[in-house]
Amino acid sequence: MEMDFAGRELPFVSRTGSIYFTPHPVAGMLRFRITIPRRIHKELMPFVTGEHSEEFTVLVCYWNDFPVTYVLEGNDVKLPDSIGVAIVREFLQKELKRLGAEADGVSLSCLGPSPFHANFHLAPCAEPIPDSSGIAIEKVNSKSTTILIRYDASHLKTSADAFARFSELTIAQFSYYYYQVALRHRRLDSAIRISNLTAGLIEMHQLSGFRGWVLRAFRSGRLAREISLAAISYEFETTTEQQSAKRTLDELYDKSSIALFRPWIESEIEEDFIAEHKASRETADLLEPRRLREANTLLVLLVAVISALMGATAKLLIG
């Protein structure tokens, strides 16, 4: 039996990279079967070639950190990499739109583009598996896209039993992985925002003439402070968040008999975007002295002009 896995994120869904809604349930499961005729596969996924399964079982499992969706494909046809997940996703999106479900508050939220493309294959093992779980990972490498999972057929009688056991052992790892993916998306949003602010600050300093002089004197200072404070807060919060995540990761794998997804989780945790925030903060700090010099020059000129006007007015009054 071939399985594809995909995460469905609720607080941090990616339609335009924004955060949409929270919270999500932390327990429970939604299960349904869906038939998608082969004749519309090409319409849903134009780049797909060949024949694919029509029958899919979808399980949305809600867990402590984030929900995880499993797509189990029919046994009639083997699909290439993760195509089953994509077919189901595109079909549901199309049908919900056709039915006008969003007007009734029903929508499909997903984490994308998918950060994790892998095919999980379950197969019985000819020999007994010494691990009490009855599950063994036969082929898995860091960043591999194909993972073969053997199960002890004398202990787990059917592939359905094996899947249930595998998901029981790994749901916490999947859930925590997609939680970290969501946090990474939030960090990326912050990096994009502060980069845009910094680009605006640089553009302000590139303006020539009196208008640029005035803008720098009265507006760029506030913008530079906003960038610096945002970067400092981000660096502190992200460092604290990473330390907590690594402790949680150690605890998670201390309790698990299958250490399967750790490289992927660590990769998400380590991508912190601190360098982008630091570069923005340094840019703001570098440009601030220029603004202060120009502001002081402008102040001196204004004082001189006001003094001259006052002198001229006094002379007229006296004179």
Rank of each mutant, 00 (worst) to 15 (best):
247 R>I: 13
232 I>F: 05
203 E>N: 15
234 Y>L: 04
239 T>M: 06
214 V>A: 12
266 E>I: 05
192 I>F: 07
223 L>W: 02
266 E>G: 04
214 V>I: 15
207 L>M: 15
247 R>M: 13
199 A>T: 07
230 A>T: 15
265 I>A: 04
217 A>C: 15
226 E>W: 00
198 T>F: 05
241 E>D: 15
269 I>T: 08
280 S>C: 15
273 F>E: 07
284 A>D: 07
198 T>Y: 03
291 R>K: 11
268 E>C: 08
225 R>T: 11
196 N>A: 13
260 L>Y: 02
268 E>Y: 02
198 T>P: 04
264 W>L: 13
272 D>L: 03
241 E>P: 00
192 I>T: 06
286 L>A: 15
193 R>V: 05
250 D>R: 12
208 S>W: 00
212 G>H: 06
244 S>T: 14
275 A>F: 05
258 I>M: 03
294 E>M: 13
290 R>V: 14
267 S>P: 00
257 S>C: 09
214 V>Y: 08
259 A>L: 03
244 S>H: 12
300 V>D: 02
221 G>Y: 10
210 F>E: 13
219 R>W: 04
196 N>Y: 01
202 I>N: 04
193 R>L: 14
202 I>T: 11
197 L>H: 07
219 R>G: 07
226 E>D: 15
198 T>K: 04
286 L>P: 00
243 Q>W: 00
216 R>T: 05
193 R>F: 10
285 D>S: 11
245 A>Q: 05
202 I>Y: 00
270 E>K: 09
211 R>F: 12
241 E>V: 01
301 L>W: 10
294 E>L: 14
243 Q>S: 09
297 T>P: 00
241 E>K: 01
196 N>H: 10
285 D>T: 09
210 F>I: 14
279 A>T: 07
277 H>C: 08
286 L>V: 00
196 N>Q: 09
